[in-house]
């Protein structure tokens, strides 16, 4: 029989696993954990558990591990993250994207030569969570820091992890030029349509009509312009690049995000090109929605404006070696 183990102490009670378990085997406890969250429990007809791992895939807090019916562990917390609990709000998908990024680096065997760059924004403390060498950069400047690090140490895998205020507003110039130069770095771009850390102000990606603390009547595009589609913008550059957009709002899309992030790091590892993955991410606190409503909002409002998929990828390298190519 397949089974899961929930780490009660890590649970922030966001309930994403409750929503995403196909068999409805996870429910809220009546108790609070030591951090004051109503944690989730795995009870009832647990024989029905298929070990599908959906609960673990959507958990932003590394709170679930999974074993299959042969008692083989099929979902292991990645060694690419530290044990530290994140400070992210319950249901925020920053945690999911951290996990995916770390898993990819671990699976590709790159953790030991990776240098990550944390931004200013909610993920400013990413250096506490990624179990690798990390910089913390000034607001918006991560692609420049990455450029300096990568040019100085080309053997390192260098990535930035940036929010939409950081990357698309104050750091617009740095991202544009790093992409245009084709820096062999990877950029993980978290689009949550808002400034999370500073408490919910309008971001360059805030949707038309979306209410934020600095667009209290809803974003007026006549006054503040239209939301920036950064992936599309970068995809217009002539420089070869891998540009993709995914969404972390549910398990299925998170699995696609993982494929995209993997591809991005493979391109860097192989020295092919600049790689950029934009990921639509939830901000329940500043959107004023529950975690489940936030997921729905991504699906209903964000994805139509920010279509998902691979926008650009260099053609596969010709198989012929230089010698063979000679006449």
């Amino acid at each position: 029989m397949a089974r899961i183990e929930i780490d009660e102490a890590r649970c922030k009670g966001c309930g994403r696993c409750v929503v995403h378990c196909p068999k409805g085997l996870i429910e809220f406890s009546t108790e609070l954990n030591e951090r004051g969250y109503r944690y989730v429990i795995y009870e009832g007809d647990v024989e029905a558990c298929t070990g599908c791992t959906m609960c673990a895939v959507v958990c932003p807090d590394q709170g679930v591990e999974v074993w299959n019916h042969r008692d083989k562990q099929t979902f292991v917390n990645t060694s690419g993250l530290t044990e530290r609990m994140t400070h992210y709000c319950p249901g925020c998908t920053h945690g999911v994207i951290h996990r995916i990024t770390a898993e990819v680096l671990e699976e590709l065997g790159l953790l030991g030569r990776t240098v990550g760059i944390a931004p200013v924004g909610c993920s400013v403390l990413a250096y506490e969570y990624f179990n690798i060498d990390m910089f913390e950069a000034a607001h918006g400047r991560a692609p420049a820091v990455a450029t300096g690090a990568k040019r100085a140490r080309p053997e390192c895998i260098v990535f930035t992890y940036q929010g939409d205020g950081d990357l698309a507003s104050i750091g617009g110039n740095e991202i544009l030029h790093a992409a245009n130069r084709g820096e062999k770095i990877t950029v993980i771009f978290i689009n949550n349509a808002i400034y999370g850390m500073t408490g919910g102000q309008m971001a360059p990606t805030t949707l038309p009509g979306q209410r934020t603390t600095t667009s209290p009547l809803g974003r007026d595009v006549e006054d503040t312009g239209h939301p920036l589609r950064v992936a599309e913008l970068l995809a217009t550059l002539a420089t070869p690049a891998y540009i993709a957009r995914g969404s972390a709002h549910d398990a299925k899309h998170s699995i696609t995000v993982k494929k995209m992030i993997k591809r991005a790091f493979e391109h860097q590892r192989d020295g092919t090109c600049f790689s950029f993955v934009e990921i639509l991410s939830t901000c329940p606190t500043n959107w004023g929605l529950s975690p489940a409503e936030s997921e729905q909002w991504v699906a209903d409002e964000m994805i139509p404006y920010f279509p998902l998929g691979v926008l650009k990828e260099p053609a596969a390298q010709p198989a012929a070696t230089p010698q063979e190519a000679q006449p």
């Binding site: 240098v115 910089f135 420049a144 450029t147 300096g148 690090a149 040019r151 100085a152 110039n173």
Partner: peptide, 26 residues
């Protein structure tokens, strides 16, 4: 060595931050 014309002085000093941080004289 490495020579790079940055997009601005804001970027160049942050490239220096990155290069110095990985331990090269810059």
């Amino acid at each position: 060595g490495v020579f790079l014309q940055a997009e601005s002085e804001v970027a160049s000093i942050n490239m220096i931050y990155g290069a110095a941080g990985v331990g090269v004289k810059c």
